[in-house]
Design a protein around this nucleic acid. Structure first.
Lengths: 199, 199, 199, 199
DNA sequence: AATGAATGAGAATTCATTCAT
DNA sequence: AATGAATGAATTCTCATTCAT
């Protein structure tokens, strides 16, 4: 039962990850302090040395998601230069993220996270907007270099890009993993490319 | 305080609606038996004459959503005959449903509804599949009558149809109603038509 | 364990009394919800049907004290007409109250009751002021009828009247009941009469 | 954050004073080990090098009060020789003590200090008895030198002396400092002198 | 069919205290 | 002598549910 002592920085990370994993796997309701503590290998009260209260743990969990999303954007931008390639790569990364950290998008879309918690709502809203803005930027770059047709509204297309993966993520979850997210993405991608290019 | 006695059928409807409204407006966590009872105008213990337990109330709430979605399908099929018109109409109905019964889609996508409740999960999954199947049917009908290009995969396009509205619904919720769902739908619709028609 | 059901009015009284008794006998720190419940013969959570929270229980306990003090005043006024007799009677009632509801005055003087609870502080302060005002009124009546010397400041004498019993109450408590409050009151009373009459 | 190391004797004094100050200012409930440590400028666990446990810290705090009271007695005896002057001086010192170290008397009268702590109770009881004995001695000295009337019971008068200041101390606390303790003492003093002298 | 009292299982949080460093 | 992490007990409060009336 006794775990080796770790410093607060390390523990905070562990707790944030455990919180996120619990919410993703068993839902917000099942994510209680005792369960988080068990997962970290501590006693419930021990968590309060590292976080003021449960709310702060959930905030930290949200941060983890945000950074993963934006990490994807950065990685893709570093890896690809061509706009459409970038978008394709990002789509695949997003799919991987969903499959790896199961349920992360659902966490974001879970209203219970936000009711009576306007700051967190604003925080997440901002994170998604940043993601959308990054996608829109990629599209505009493509327009600038002539690979994407100029008439297209970048913002609308960016939201649609999210729509490429979001419904299938939901289906994947509801079907307990039977729906093939990656395959749907592969099949939907050409349709999206058509929107980007054909006019 | 004393409410006129109502027969069980009527009460069950009231309770299901109250449950749904509460979840939609304040989240699953805020939807407790006492709150539902208050909304119906009864005392908590009174609900147990009409439902075995809270879980059954939530099941009833899910039914309400399902039927609203399928009602939309039926209404649209009755009203429109042209495939693309039908899809356009359905899109608008969906947007209306989201704006009217605020957050209903989020309820469906709320993982807390399903964890450790495989029957409910299956039920909702089935409901969405039916909705998707109906959309795919519309597309196939369009292909049969020549208004939609034959090469298109109906299932993939149906999921994409959901993606037309789902991300914007999330944005609408997160932004506390500032994001304009209807306008996004209007702007995204031509892009979807392009997928349906241009080859 | 199962206790016969009682209506809320009755339960509130029982809870207030149990709370007061606990504080008086074992101190504020020992007065937790579980202990109160045990004393009433209920389960802790049952108390929350009758009181919003522990604070409201403590408020009710304070009310009980207040009313006992003012009941004494009323009873004495009804029983005696002569000012000095009244004061003597009130002194004896006060002594009885202390011995019967052991520690009540200590409750009033316990600072933990008031920290960060300004309303309660004001409430108790008001109660004591009323008691003091009643005593001062008795003194002024004595002055009007000529049994108490006119030069005496009624307010000062009223506070001193409290001083007749308060220190001995403390000593009684600290000495675990060995200090004889009644005897001290008897011996101190002539000294107070001297103040009232001799000029 | 790191505090210079101090020897235990010095630390014990600091801790006792901090404990007392906390109880006096915010009540016994707010006086937890963490708060004491913060006030001293240490970390909670550090206190346990200087005191076996919290109880011993509270005992030390009680000692501080005791010695302050008896210091007053000694100082007054050194300063004044005439009995009545001594008592007047002591009264003023007591009033000063109350105003300076806000709430110290209340600490003494706080039952939570004593419940289930018979040794502490006995200790405080003894301290007050010593104080009372000192006052009674002053009175008897006055009787020996003829400045106080011989018929007066010294013990009863000593308790009454406490009553001169105690109720007003309570009122001062409850009224959040609005009640004027010093003025009441001034006005009550002549009445007490009357008891001491007039027969 | 509806009410109001009661229950019991948890939930979050606080706090004194211990222990390795 | 002092720190920071960890523990375990206690406490307040919430909530689904049962039961007698």
């Amino acid at each position: 039962m006794a775990t080796a002592k770790q410093n607060t920085k390390r523990r905070q990370e562990q707790i944030a990850q455990a919180t996120l994993a619990l919410v993703a796997e068993h839902g917000l309701a099942a994510c209680n302090v005792a369960a988080v503590a068990r997962r970290v290998g501590l006693v419930p009260s021990a968590l309060y040395r590292h976080f003021r209260n449960k709310d702060h743990m959930l905030d930290a969990a949200v941060e983890v998601i945000q950074s993963k999303l934006l990490d994807n954007v950065r990685a893709v931008c570093a890896r690809q230069t061509h706009a459409i390639e970038r978008l394709h790569d990002l789509l695949q990364q997003h799919v991987q993220l969903i499959k790896k950290s199961r349920g992360i998008p659902q966490v974001i879309f879970s209203p219970d996270f936000y009711v009576d918690r306007p700051q967190r709502r604003a925080r997440v809203c901002d994170g998604i907007r940043q993601y959308l803005a990054a996608v829109a930027d990629m599209i505009r770059e493509g327009q600038a270099t002539g690979t994407i047709r100029p008439g297209l509204d970048a913002e609308t297309a960016a939201v649609l890009f999210l729509g490429l993966v979001q419904p299938s993520a939901v289906l994947w979850n509801l079907s307990s993993g039977k729906f093939n997210v990656a395959r749907h993405a592969e099949k939907a991608w050409p349709l999206f490319v058509q929107i980007l290019t054909t006019g």
